[in-house]
Amino acid sequence: MVKYLAQRLLLMGITVTGMVTVVFFLLRLIPGDPAEYMLGDYATEESLAALRAELGLDLPIHEQYVRFMGRAFSGDLGTSVVTGQPALAEVLASLPWSAALALAGIVIAIVIGVPLGVISAVRQGSWTDLGVMLVALAGISFPVFWVGLVAILVFAHELPLFPALGATSSENPLTRLHHLALPALVLGISVAAYIARLTRSAMLEVLGQDYVRVARAMGVRENRVVYRLALRNALIPVLSVIGVTFAWSLGSAILVEAVFSRPGLGSMILKAIFARDYQLVQAGVMVLSLAVVLINTSLDIVYGIVDPRVRTA
């Protein structure tokens, strides 16, 4: 077990370092000079040179890389070239927004997706099954931002049940939930559709296994077979996919945030990409990748505890 843990943690370190490296070099390929962007219309050659020196942009790229990595390990992710604020502070300010959206989305997805998948599998071939699967098919097929647009049109405009803005500065938790609800539902439903399809497949697989057949043959009540025996085992693959889903929902969250004018890590990175704010993009991706990898690793570890077969794989 200790060896397994150590392996996972080592892999996590390599992955995060690798991701940051990829991003660092990728961003250096972006055409455009952040110094010119900052100084804009009134830039002069001298002021550009001074700013490049200040940002270390005049150093050879490998030196910039070493400098960046050295500082990153001490928690200094640089300074946003646009605002002059520490990049980490700006990233941490947008992190709670993303965390709330992604977590609420995943919770909604699990709460809706798993039961639908189970019902569908239990009633395989019925109209219920067909209906659920058609809805789930639509859920994974509509572009998430388009669903968001339509949701605003219907639930904020035609029937003003929810605010059009996905964020509020109110300190009232209920107001916050009210603003979070629509974006979280839009994100959650697309993930729920995926989880429902996955749960159904996993349930069908388990229900076809010998030990389930044996349990049925032995006269164990159907409810017990389905919910005690089959569901528990079917949830293992579902659980392992949630980590992956989390990363993907952070990607979709960029679009959901854009539709609902909601702040967050995704929209911050998007803004920084547009502004050529390397330091901020780096910091954002670093924190984001750390979050994704942390969640995947901890799920892996949990998975390893739950299912010892995984450890040897």
Partner: peptide, 24 residues
């Protein structure tokens, strides 16, 4: 596979976004 896992760990849409920003 380590290289592959590094790319896999990115939210794919974010990676695509960054790549488009690089190439225009």
């Amino acid at each position: 596979m380590v290289g592959n896992d590094i790319l896999l760990a990115f939210p794919g849409f974010l990676l695509a976004l960054a790549l488009v920003a690089v190439r225009g």
